[in-house]
Amino acid sequence: MTPTATAGRTPRRRLTAFLHRHAGVRLSLLLSAPLLWLGVAYLGALAALFVTALWSTDTFTGDVVKELTWVNFQDLFTLDVYRTIALRSVGVAVAVTLIDLVIAFPMAFAMAKLASPRAQRWLVIAVLTPLWASYLVKAYAWRIMLSADGVLGWGYGLTATILTLSYLWLPYMILPIYAGLERLPDSLLDAAGDLGARGPRTFRTVVWPLTFPAVIAGSVFTFSLSLGDYITVKIVGGTSQLIGNVVYDNIGAANNLPFAAAVATVPVVIMLVYLAAVRRTGALENL
């Protein structure tokens, strides 16, 4: 009797041999818990939320009436106030994304193409560090700066919200663009120069097309994070309202979960459309 033959009969040995032969079983085991969590529980919760959006609330008792109705979506589309708020939210998200893009691109370019490798390392750390500082702390810092007797003293409102959101999400735009520019070989820029292209033309025909997926990856963050935000608006927005505030107020003060759920579908649909549109650019691989 050889030792291997005895070992072959221990349960552990049999289990590993079985797993080794059956890749499908290994895969199912690996996917089981994550898919139960994210696929069944999380997606289930999302699905349930959207079913709730088709229910209504009894205005008299405040109870949820579990009958399918389009009334929430009708309100959402026909009442001017919600259309204004939805458009305003999208406007804020677009503004934040554009501001961040304009600030982040030159910064990322200087980091990736002008700085020495040693300086690059420190610059990446310098951009990353504020990401670890608390979101609330940063919004709070702007509240203090913008307050009437603060450093800037500009006061609160929609502009303050856009400024603060741009500040909050700026590193999310810098990092993907920096990574994209780093992957762009310097030789391409040199070749463009040798062929007679000046700075702007090199940018338009070489740099921008090749870093576009990275820009999109950054914009997914800035756009989505701005679209769902209601905390910053509360901190520096004064009386302005975004989609997030409508959702929040309908859960809290108004206690109207079905309507809140209906409102919440708006940013989700916008984000899904956006993600589907940018999937083709290959940007999602950059996240």
Binding site: L27, G39, L46, L49, A264, V268
Partner: peptide, 30 residues
């Protein structure tokens, strides 16, 4: 390699891609 691989990698991304308030109220409700 398996069927739906792309869907699974997208699913992992979903909780940070969707606005936090959506994840929040969906979980609260559930």
């Amino acid at each position: 390699d398996f069927f739906g691989k792309n869907a699974v990698s997208l699913l992992i991304l979903l909780p940070i891609a969707l606005p936090g308030i959506v994840t929040g109220i969906a979980l609260n409700n559930a």
